[in-house]
Amino acid sequence: MKIGLPKTAAIFMAAGLLALALPVMPGLLKGNAFYGWPMQGDLYPDLVESSNGSAHTFVTLGYLGCGDVCPTQLATLAELDGLLKEARVRFRFVTLAPGLDSEERMHTVMSGLGSRFDWTRPASERSAQALARDLGERVASRPEQHGEPQWLHPGHVYLLDPSGRALLAYRGSLLEPERMRDDLRQLLAEEPKS
């Protein structure tokens, strides 16, 4: 008598195991010591606060009307903020929809997340999309739903050094704040002491 799982059940189990492994796979596959993906080091000085001197900045792009990845990424960054209480770090949200996200609304949401949260509202959707493309994100608009335009975007998180140099990219919507904290600690430990 043959006892075994039906093929469908085995496929679902394999898919479930793969889904559980996805958060740790980037570090295993790319062969480096960081959880985040290394970036080419392009400079984005407008995304860091020059008055903060030596603060690293975690940046994400999205829009406040997003009902999907943006709330998840902002919650992740808020959790990371709690893990990095003593670190010189900032968090910046860049809107992809400056026509929808007013300055007042951006200020209200970001200040509600904490004193280290800032926002950037580009002059136009075109300039916001150019920044997204420059960072390697694919952004597209889709038809309006419930009276507001919708944007398809991945919601990656980027870590920039104090000069605005892109160091790491975190891809995915279920990021691990503890591992992001560990990346920052490792980068800080590797920095030359002045």
Results as ranks from 00 to 15, higher is better:
132 A>M: 14
149 P>V: 06
95 T>F: 01
140 A>W: 06
17 L>Q: 05
124 S>W: 07
69 V>K: 02
106 M>G: 02
75 A>N: 03
158 Y>M: 10
136 G>I: 11
151 W>A: 05
111 S>H: 09
148 E>H: 12
173 S>R: 03
177 P>Q: 10
178 E>Y: 11
173 S>L: 03
167 L>W: 02
162 P>R: 02
118 D>Q: 12
168 L>R: 07
130 A>V: 15
80 L>C: 01
190 E>P: 04
105 R>K: 15
24 V>C: 00
190 E>R: 14
12 F>I: 10
68 D>W: 01
44 Y>N: 10
23 P>Y: 08
156 H>Q: 10
71 P>E: 00
48 V>K: 05
161 D>R: 02
114 G>V: 03
71 P>A: 00
8 T>L: 09
79 E>F: 10
111 S>A: 05
11 I>Y: 10
151 W>T: 12
164 G>L: 13
124 S>M: 09
9 A>H: 10
160 L>W: 07
29 L>E: 05
9 A>I: 12
85 K>M: 01
189 A>S: 15
174 L>W: 10
67 G>Y: 02
167 L>K: 07
42 D>L: 14
64 L>G: 10
144 E>K: 08
29 L>S: 03
14 A>Y: 04
111 S>T: 06
190 E>N: 12
56 H>T: 00
27 G>D: 03
80 L>R: 03
142 R>Y: 02
144 E>V: 07
148 E>S: 10
154 P>Y: 03
149 P>Y: 06
140 A>L: 06
40 Q>I: 07
188 L>K: 11
26 P>W: 08
13 M>G: 07
178 E>P: 07
173 S>W: 04
150 Q>V: 11
